[in-house]
Every structure is written in C-alpha cells, then in structure tokens.
C-alpha cells in the first residue's frame, strides 16, 4: 500500500493498492482499509458498508474482469475525507455494460446463484458509478453520523507499509 497524497488543508488522504487477481488478497486489503476507517472515526455501519462494497467490487474485478488471470492486476484507490470515503477499483478486463446486468430481484432471477454484487454496492454506498466501459467502478460513502467526536478523531492515518 502507498499513501498517494495528503492535503492537510482539505484533510483528504489517498491510498493505492495493486493486487494480483487472487481472491485470497481480499481479506488483507479489507483489514487495512477498515483499520484506516476506524482510526478516522467512521462508524461500525460505515465500516460494514465499505467492507461489503469493496469486497463485491474487487471480487467482480478479479473474477469477471480479469478472469482470475494471475498476470492481470486490480488497482484499488481509497480516499479518506472528513465527511466521506471513496473507493475506486480498476481491472484489466474487457469491460461490461452495468445496465445490461439482469435485475436479481426479478422473480425469474431470484434463484440465480450470482448477480447480486452490484445491487448490494448500490445499496450500501451513496454513489456508485462505472467508468472506462465498466473496467472502473467509483463509489462514495458519506459518513453515517458526523458527530463532533468523530470529527475530532479524524487524524492523519498511518501508512502501514
């Protein structure tokens, strides 16, 4: 992981990871990101939402984007601000049209074993946007509760490595 930039004026911290297409990489990434959110005073509800959306996005990027090919990587960027957190996940696949993904809540699709990840991302994040013909997803989650104590707790997150 690398701390990309730090703006003390705006109090925004950005981090970047580059991972091989291996699902076993996901728990370690989640752990680092949840730790950063916790240090910045984000709530349990925020951390659940980000952890879930992150896992769905990265798993989709590795499985459907990169087809689990080990030489293809997934890039994950994280931005931590006082009022929100954003995540950007990019893969090296062919891309896809998110509007063509069948509605998993439709009666005829309820018994399909897959296809619910994007729905969950859209529910748990405040903004989800696909870019670069579906190869990049950008998501934002606003702080569930911006209490004074949370803002006081917002401090420069350490660079783990």
């Amino acid at each position: 992981m690398a701390l990309l930039s730090e703006s003390k004026a705006q109090r925004v911290y950005e981090y970047l990871w580059r991972l091989p297409s291996d699902l076993d990489q996901i728990p370690g990434l989640q752990s680092q990101i949840v730790d950063l959110l916790s240090r910045c005073g984000f709530s349990e509800r925020d951390m659940f939402a980000v952890r879930l959306a992150l896992e769905e996005a990265v798993a989709n990027a590795m499985k459907h984007g990169n087809r689990l090919l080990p030489h293809k990587c997934v890039e994950v960027a994280l931005g931590l601000g006082e009022d929100s957190v954003w995540i950007r996940v990019c893969d090296e696949g062919e891309g896809f049209d998110p509007d063509q993904v069948p509605d998993p809540t439709a009666e005829e699709n309820l018994e399909r074993p897959s296809g619910r990840g994007i729905l969950l991302m859209r529910h748990f994040m405040d903004h989800v946007e696909y870019r670069d013909r579906g190869r990049t997803v950008f998501m934002v989650r606003r702080r569930a509760c911006s209490s004074e104590s949370n803002h006081q707790a917002f401090c420069a997150p350490p660079v783990a490595e």
């Binding site: 659940f48 952890r51 896992e55 769905e56 798993a59 018994e111 399909r112 074993p113 619910r116």
Partner: peptide, 16 residues
C-alpha cells in the same frame, strides 16, 4: 456479522 453476495449464491444452491 458479515456476508457477501457469494454466500447468498451458496444459500440459493443449498435451497434447491
């Protein structure tokens, strides 16, 4: 306390 769509898929298959 935590689960994702991957586990939902397993539950759907188990239900069948």
């Amino acid at each position: 306390e935590y689960m994702t769509s991957a586990f939902l898929g397993k539950l759907v298959t188990l239900n069948k």
